[in-house]
Simulated scan of single mutants.
Amino acid sequence: MIVVAGEALIDLVPQGGAADDGGDLPVLAPRLGGGPFNTAVAVGRLGSPVAFCSRVSRDAFGEALLGGLTRAGVDVSYVQRGDEPTTLAVASIAADGSAGYSFYVEGTADRLFSVPDRLPPGTRAVSFGTCSLVLEPGASAYEELMRSASGQGVFTALDPNIRAGLIPDPDAYRARFKSWLPSTGLLKLSEEDAQWLGGTPQEWLASGPAAVVITRGGDGLTVFTRGGARYDVPGERVDLVDTIGAGDTVNAALLHGLATWDALSVEAVAGLAEDAWHRLLRFAARAAAVTCSRAGAEPPYASELPPL
């Protein structure tokens, strides 16, 4: 069982054209989203057993989010519920297909997440990231869960997925990020995240992770290993619609691949050979490319990808 811990929210995505009032407001369509939510859905679609650990509103958006998880085969029995509203993220799509976001997070349900009494039976890995590790008081609860899981020998994955507009004190966040590394088995982040954080893969590896995977957009993926190796694979070319959910799909593909190989441990990841890393990264690149060929975060099903 892979557990994904973090927020579920609604992305409001531009659809092209203007609203009916004739003004400059774009037409926005609600899409199920949030980095951890997308990761959980992608893991479920790829076929690995997965559970979602979060706090979700009882409003109509919250019900839709639970429905999306359930349709993907995600266990939602560890989702907490609240009467507060669902977080909203308004997306803007640049000419190159990249997405930017502004957030409406005050008083929303996912911020009040509390540490569960236990993880689902058979938990082999827990994945963390994005807004859930920024917005208090929930951020401290997710951090506590990360440290607890790691301390129990459960493999942990971290995708910081930086949303700079939500971080009031960048230096404090960077220090907090470094404090998570001893409790992290696999660190995955984008080139932009790495630049914002200001460190290097070698520095991060020295603090704990068995491997650091960096996404480079259409240029592909790179992994840096604890043993000092670096392996690169190119990106998969597709007709780009947008990049929403692409990084989350990479995260899910990595976890699914490691689970398939029974390699969800620090020791196993540290021991992966060059051929295995190339196979895993190519699989993740292909999965992300499928997501980029669709509007919004719509990760692929296992039947749409070549076998690992």
Rank of each mutant, 00 (worst) to 15 (best):
V43S: 13
D117E: 13
A64I: 00
A95S: 08
R111K: 06
A94M: 06
V76F: 02
G35H: 00
V134M: 08
V56M: 08
G33Q: 05
L133C: 10
G122K: 10
T39N: 11
R71Y: 05
F37N: 08
L32E: 15
A99Q: 07
V126N: 15
A51I: 08
L133G: 11
D110E: 10
A40F: 03
T87Y: 01
S54C: 01
L112V: 00
G34H: 08
R71W: 05
A72I: 06
V74Q: 13
L32I: 02
T108N: 04
V105F: 02
R71M: 09
T70Y: 04
G34D: 06
R55T: 00
C53S: 12
V76S: 03
F61Y: 13
G129D: 05
T70K: 15
F103E: 12
V43Y: 12
G35I: 05
P36Q: 12
I93F: 10
L66Q: 07
F128C: 11
R71L: 13
L135D: 00
V43M: 09
T86I: 10
L119R: 12
G129Y: 07
V115E: 14
P36I: 01
A99Y: 12
F37L: 14
V76G: 01
A64N: 12
A91E: 09
V56T: 14
A51F: 02
D96L: 09
R45Q: 10
A125W: 07
T123D: 04
S114M: 05
E84P: 06
R58I: 09
F61N: 15
L133S: 08
P116S: 11
G34S: 05
P49L: 09
I93Y: 14
L46V: 15
D83K: 13
L69H: 03
D96E: 11
G107T: 09
L66F: 00
R55I: 00
V50Y: 02
Y78C: 13
D75C: 03
T39I: 04
R31N: 13
P49D: 07
D110S: 00
A89V: 12
A89P: 01
F128P: 08
G47W: 05
F37C: 03
G82K: 02
V50Q: 09
D110M: 00
G34Y: 13
Y104W: 13
G47Q: 07
L69F: 08
A91I: 14
V126M: 05
